[in-house]
């Protein structure tokens, strides 16, 4: 068991290496280089300028050579400067983008989880009740609405029509004092969190419900009930513990996806997070920023996968890894 986990953990390193090669190659093979951006904004850009800059940026070498340089420095923790922002790419990503992303996606996932698990459970326990139908219907809406569209609708209703909440952004410039800042931040968070958590909430509730239903019908639950165990105990100890299993995998898998995949929500609500940073970096060919953020996300995914496996083992003692 322990040996298995160590082996899995060690596997992360070669996996990460393969991923970095793939991403670097894809980025390098994509049409466009950092010079394009400079030329576009500057009439009077000459062939000499191009030659000079391409050499200056080391772009005259083939991608595998550049990759080799990159990986050598990255191994020492130096991910190179951002061409666009003129600061270390890692600093830009981790100082300016990551905290915002953690706030938004962390809160969204937390809220989704906290709502989805009990709702799904209740809905399964009261299968075919009005509550169950209501929850199911709301879930269907949740998984059917395009997330950016939902965001825009929320914005249209709450900030354009009702003028209750701000139309995006992290904060109102010019607020001071700890409490007002927290209130302001919370107001800015409501709409993006609502938009971002809707999909996860709906799909988790759905899965929670279906895995609960599955377990309720299993023999050992029937046995437990037949033994005369109190219904509460049956639900909590026997049903819930087992029903939560697939959800945990989903949560672990969702965390990195939400972090990088929030680009739509971030765009609509003008939220400066990782998703948008990655998107922009690729669009303007700021390779170092794209690399460092994509590698970070990949690492997170691998770690959370490992975590999901560990939780599997802990929660379901029948699974053995030998």
């Amino acid at each position: 068991m322990f040996a298995y986990l160590v082996r899995r953990a060690l596997q992360i390193i070669p996996t990460l290496f393969v991923i970095s090669v793939v991403i670097y190659a894809l980025l390098a093979l994509k049409p466009g280089d950092p010079i394009d951006e400079l030329r576009r904004g500057n009439p009077g850009f000459t062939a000499a300028d191009y030659d000079r800059l391409i050499k200056l940026y080391g772009l005259d070498k083939p991608w595998y050579v550049r990759y080799w340089y990159w990986v050598g420095r990255a191994a020492q923790g130096d991910f190179g400067p951002s061409r666009r922002f003129g600061m270390p790419a890692a600093q830009y990503v981790f100082q300016y983008r990551l905290p915002n992303t953690l706030l938004l996606s962390g809160l969204s996932l937390l809220i989704a989880f906290v709502i989805a698990v009990p709702t799904g459970m209740l809905s399964a326990l009261r299968q075919h009740s009005l509550f169950d139908y209501g929850v199911t219907f709301v879930n269907f809406i949740g998984v059917s609405i395009p997330i950016f569209w939902f965001g825009i609708m929320l914005m249209y209703i709450f900030s354009v029509q009702l003028r209750l909440l701000p139309a995006g952004s992290l904060q109102t410039p010019g607020i001071e004092g700890l409490w007002p800042i927290i209130v302001d931040r919370a107001r800015h968070l409501i709409l993006p969190v609502a938009a971002l958590s809707s999909l996860q909430m709906a799909s988790w509730t759905r899965f929670m419900r279906s895995s609960m239903l599955e377990i309720i019908n299993l023999d050992y639950i029937r046995t437990a009930r037949a033994k005369g165990l109190p219904e509460r105990l049956v639900t909590v100890r026997h049903t819930m513990r087992n029903a939560i299993l697939p959800i945990i995998t989903l949560v672990a898998l969702a965390i990195p996806t939400v972090m990088s995949g929030a680009v739509l929500t971030e765009t609509v609500f003008n939220w400066p997070g990782m998703g948008r940073a990655i998107f922009d970096a690729i669009v303007v060919n700021d390779f170092n920023v794209a690399m460092v953020s994509l590698m970070f996300i990949s690492l997170l995914v691998l770690l959370f996968n490992l975590l999901a496996d560990i939780i599997y083992v802990i929660v379901d003692p029948r699974i053995r890894y030998d």
Binding site: T15, V18, I19, V22, I23, L253, P256, T257, S260, G261, V263, G275, I278, F279, I282, A290, L294, I297, S298, L299, V301, L302, N305
Partner: peptide, 9 residues
């Protein structure tokens, strides 16, 4: 590996 390659980018 496929899962850890972020989708949208």
């Amino acid at each position: 590996i496929m899962l850890s390659l972020p989708t949208l980018p």
